[in-house]
């Protein structure tokens, strides 16, 4: 039997590496990096926010790539990767949508503003959930994989269009705040990069785990089917 994901040795190394990087990351964020002058302690959520946001968008890119691969080859291996990535992406997008308003409340003094990045994250979340719904509503496996792959492709292509349209929208109604004018300290930038890297590792670790769970699930279904045939 082919070893997919969680059983292999490289995967164990990935797990250990993720653990170490996360520890380093937490150390950097909470102890090493200097506090922001104006915002103070709250600003530290920024490192989690950006790290998870990067993973959320990256995960959807993975969905896109593996959806195309699935439609080309019809190999269920690719479908497992795409759907696992979508589920992890949903979780990370949810984290983005929770950490974002907490940070916004303290720095912009409002929970929510219809700023392009915020709005795009929200729409991304809706599209992810729609993807999962398509899988949930499809009846047989073949259809599930195929339809969700199609949806993964058009959903991914929609995201940049959403971003640009919302940006135009906010130009015609000028925003009160701009998030881009932030100057990062070299130390802060370093912490941010470490944070992004460790969240990316965490993403790959989750992906490996989830893919192997899906693999086992598919095998179980196959065994059940054969058993039924045998008995029936």
């Amino acid at each position: 039997m082919e070893k997919e994901g969680a059983k292999s040795k490289t995967f164990g190394i990935l797990g250990a590496l993720t653990f170490l990087m996360m520890l380093v990351n937490l150390y950097l964020i909470f102890i090493w990096v200097p506090e922001e002058k104006i915002l103070g302690l709250v600003q530290k959520i920024f490192y989690f926010h950006v790290g998870t946001a990067w993973v959320a968008f990256f995960a959807f890119f993975v969905v896109f790539i593996y959806s195309i691969l699935y439609l080309k080859t019809k190999d269920s291996k690719w479908d497992r990767i795409a759907s696992a990535s979508a589920e992890i992406g949903t979780v990370f997008t949810t984290i983005v949508l929770i950490t974002g308003p907490i940070w916004a409340k303290s720095s912009w003094n409002t929970w929510w503003t219809w700023e392009p990045r915020l709005t795009t994250s929200l729409i991304l979340w809706f599209i992810y959930l729609a993807y999962i719904l398509v899988r949930g509503f499809a009846t047989e496996y073949q259809k599930k994989a195929q339809l969700s792959a199609v949806f993964g492709i058009i959903g991914f292509i929609d995201v940049p269009i959403v971003f640009f349209s919302v940006r135009w929208w906010s130009i015609s109604h000028p925003t009160l705040f701009s998030g881009s004018g932030m100057n990062l300290d070299p130390e802060m930038l370093f912490t941010l990069l470490v944070s992004v890297a460790s969240f990316t590792l965490l993403y790959f670790y989750f992906l490996g785990k989830l893919v192997s769970i899906f693999h086992v699930r598919a095998e179980l279904a196959e065994i059940k089917r054969r058993l039924k045939e045998h008995l029936g």
Binding site: I123, F126, I127, L129, A130, L133, V134, F137, A138, T139, K143, L147, F151, I154, G155, D158, I161, V162, F164, S165
Partner: peptide, 21 residues
């Protein structure tokens, strides 16, 4: 969505997020 169960529930939920632009 026609190949899924209760497709009239599914369709608006998957259509509107994509239609936003």
């Amino acid at each position: 969505s026609v190949h899924t169960k209760s497709n009239e529930l599914l369709l608006p939920v998957i259509l509107f997020p994509l239609l936003i632009p």
